[in-house]
Design a protein around this nucleic acid. Structure first.
Lengths: 197, 197, 197, 197
DNA sequence: ACCTAAGCGAGACGGTACGTCTCGTCTTGCG
DNA sequence: CGCAAGACGAGACGTACCGTCTCGCTTAGGT
């Protein structure tokens, strides 16, 4: 999986060199991990990847684009439950997300992306798109609940997805990913109570 | 309110000059408003306030400290309800916060503070402190509900406050402060249903 | 000679841009001339040259290096005589140096360099090197005198060169470059008498 | 003599407090010794002396004034010979000066004063005055030589004094105070040969 | 015995410069 | 034409001093 380039990468002609792109993504992730968002600069990534800065700018127009790319590359599947209980499904989703953010670089990367989005409109747009897509995806938990008659039919699945994500995001950006399973379950239960028939 | 200094501010002896402090706070707010978080630098604030950089660093150890100061100075009271319905109280709190963030500089300032906290640990600590204090304050809505028997006594008021704040924060940082009253009420109702007896 | 850059200088690739180097040298000289050593700062030079500070630091590690460069760029040839009389050769050397220091920026630049060397060890080293090289060069006047039998063979040419330079330097740093030809010749004659056979 | 102030110095009424003046002079000397000219700032002296900056500015209008004061306070007598040989007298003077500059703070202080004089006109004037006075003093060595018939009567004593001082100053400012007695004697002999009958 | 005047330590003030960092752009020379 | 390399103008970073200011205190000398 694209281990560190040893001697030197060169151009492979008039087209994008996938090795370079990978090296840059890996370097970005490594820098983010080691130095955090504060030390995450295009300079640092280029140095680390032994890549020229223009090569980065050529393919990722902004820091945000690189962050998003790295985040999606890094992200693994989330447990969306699939039990016959919305509470259980929501609990598993939240716990799974908390674990992933806590134990892989994904959390730091996503925090960086959120930070970047507060000043860079393109990052903001990308983040908004991504968030909507994820909400839609998570909304299926509720839709399934409605379908099997567990959840009231007048509940807006997107609103519930929004509440779930909000809870997770806010814990991420305030450094509270260390919530216990009980605490997470309590949140899931509270929301579940609000929506079951 | 913050009239332009005419000739020049000077030292007023071996103690802090409140005029300078005010001028700096005002300049910080103005820069943030005009240039956004991306253009918010100590240099820019100093230039705008006609203050020396060391004067800023003397009293605000970091950009975060200045941001927080400006935010608290800017913040006005929030409607915490006080009706005999937790749903109504929560709705009023959320709507009032959305309005304030949308229609005053407070929203942009708080977004900046959140962004800053993702890279600056002191900002993160300050933000966490502030958030906890606010949560405790908002939890009273629920405590009142429990006291009058409207809310189940096994509900954790801090968890509810957390959910409320999460909803608001996430809408702030994803640029969705334009939710309709109906949407906000739907969120409040959902949570309320989950906690009433 | 040093026309003003019109639109903007740019990078010309991964190598030094001679235009920038020249612009910086010219700006340094101009600043030194107009503001004197007290007003000679890297900031001021960068401003004047419309160059970034890092560009200056990249090529001149210290103020001293820039000063020395400017001095050598500015310096023109000195009359080292070449007559058949050491007295006449020494006189011409001294007079030529006094004239140059008095009538061109070289004098002020060299004074600055001496001042800088009193606090900056790298400047001190550079100045010591330069001084030694110049002494060796000037010592040839005496060596020629020894060769043609005019000067005693037990005279150390470097000592004589040292005395000559000392006389000039001291007059420079105490603002006594306005010595008459007679005064300069008297000094040359005194030293000559001490060394002829 | 002027031991470290223990508790605090205070005003002693509407007149200069000699204790403060002494403490400042001592602090100036100590700072110069420990940090060198580069670290010699009014701030540093004030800190060291536990004095207010205005107290320093009140009595010494410039860094140069303080330096000169400290130099004169520090300076001890020089051996002006008094033998019946100008060469011996000049040698003793030079050696004595080299030793003093090398082994006491005087050398560093004087270097600083010379540096300061290159940018500060008041320092330059003070230095020029001081130098002239010292030259006149040293010229007596030659005058005595003329009086006893050892030195040619057409020799200008001030020129000889100038050459002597120049040799010493230049060695001071180029860090060559470590000349051997032989080297110093060679210089004295060369000049002596040029002036004896 | 009171009052004024000036010196004192202290330290904040508006500034300028420091030397370093990163930004995003540019151009080269190789492949 | 892509690539590594790295220089470029720009400008922010946080720190050190600059020289000035005002404070609250102390003391001496004139009233």
């Amino acid at each position: 999986m694209g281990e560190t380039v040893e001697n030197a990468r060169r151009s492979i002609g008039a087209r994008r060199n996938p090795d370079s792109a990978d090296a840059i993504r890996e370097a970005a992730e490594a820098v983010l991990l080691e130095k955090g968002y504060a030390g995450f600069s295009i300079e640092a990534v280029a140095r680390r990847a032994r890549a020229g800065k223009p090569t980065i700018y050529r393919w990722w127009p902004s820091k945000a684009a690189l962050l998003l790319d790295v985040y999606q590359r890094q992200k693994r599947d989330i447990d969306y439950g699939g039990t016959d209980s919305v509470e259980e499904d929501m609990f598993r989703f939240l716990r799974s997300l908390f674990v992933q953010w806590r134990e892989t670089p994904a959390g730091d990367i996503f925090r960086s992306l959120i930070a970047e989005a507060q000043s860079d409109p393109t990052a903001a747009a990308a983040l908004a798109d991504y968030a909507r897509e994820r909400r839609e995806h998570r909304a299926r938990i509720i839709e399934r609940g409605i379908a099997r008659g567990e959840v009231r039919s007048d509940v807006d699945p997107m609103l519930v997805a929004d509440l779930l994500a909000s809870y997770a995001w806010t814990h991420l950006i305030t450094g509270r990913l260390d919530e216990s399973d009980e605490a997470i379950r309590a949140a899931a239960r509270l929301i579940a109570r609000g929506i079951v028939v």
